[in-house]
Design a protein around this nucleic acid. Structure first.
Ligand code: FES
Ligand code: FES
Lengths: 150, 150
DNA sequence: TATAACTGATACTATATTGATATCAATTAA
DNA sequence: TTAATTGATATCAATATAGTATCAGTTATA
């Protein structure tokens, strides 16, 4: 059971990049190259992020995409919701036996409890947190191999 | 995002029934009718449960299926694993940037932490627990409407 | 003003997964 | 003997996922 689809995965990685380079427009082309995400697929998903008010874009030469919200205000729970729909453990289990008195359905209750736990976890992890983790890891190990960028 | 597929859902409901009627063989036909599960689909899934040592069967007239393990020893985590594979949040996110030094990948670490939380929750809910919840609910409300069986 | 570098918007294709059905052989209680 | 049942496959349709292609519109800048 794979929780994150490629699309959500890619979106997180794209946002991680936009969140690192603030206040400049980053082109889909460069994100695609940098993060190894299929170009047109990325384009599509960026449009969805715009529609959901997470990023803004600028058309034309030197155009691109930029974060609209603070990275800390984007939990991956939201990205899952955008690309895969709200987390639901089961639509409605055990239909025939119990759904007559649905209000008291203990099974449903148990399932919903799990849903909350899962959602809470995905809410705790924000793009901002991931960026900081990433920076910290790079800073601490600051390792051998390639060091600075351009 | 739907966590449980129909197959897992059906399997839980089938096991709930087998767990309630201990020490008798219950036919696929009766489970199908009782739980409103497509007959052949159920047959297939019961075979999988046999292969995974969760139920046993008896062929021929008056044959059917019976629990092999204690209901309390079957967490729904195991059923998810059987029918949908082990829970994994993401195969390997953020590949290009960090997978060079995979051992220190903080992102992967975060993802794995969530995986553990999710698994722990699904481990806590066993078929046995669900049966008791169900019985308790029926006992407590013992309500208006249909009461006894045959 | 031409043009290259971009985004916006769709339409399309391929593949995998999910959900469901059909068939036939073998077994067994009655 | 036969009806009820499982064992084992094969097949199919619907949906979801992943990825590609195309064309129109926008904008910096040479
Ligand atoms: S499963 Fe539908 S209400 Fe309980
Ligand atoms: S994403 Fe692959 S190791 Fe971090």
């Amino acid at each position: 059971m794979k929780v994150l689809t490629k699309k959500t995965d890619y979106a997180i990685r794209a946002l991680l990049m936009l969140g690192s380079k603030r206040d400049v427009y980053v082109s889909a082309k460069s994100i695609s190259a940098d993060q190894d995400i299929p170009y047109q697929f990325l384009r599509g998903l960026l449009q969805e992020l715009i529609r959901h008010d997470l990023v803004v874009s600028k058309e034309g030469a030197q155009g691109g995409f930029m974060m609209k919200k603070e990275p800390d205000e984007i939990p991956i729970a939201q990205l899952i919701e955008v690309f895969q729909g709200k987390v639901q453990v089961s639509e409605c289990m055990f239909r025939k036996q119990i759904c007559a008195n649905r209000a008291r359905c203990v099974l449903r209750h148990e399932i919903m409890r799990i849903e909350e736990v899962v959602n809470r976890e995905f809410d705790k992890v924000t793009i901002g947190k991931l960026i900081r983790d990433l920076d910290a890891a790079n800073g601490v190990t600051h390792g051998s191999g390639e060091k600075g960028g351009s």
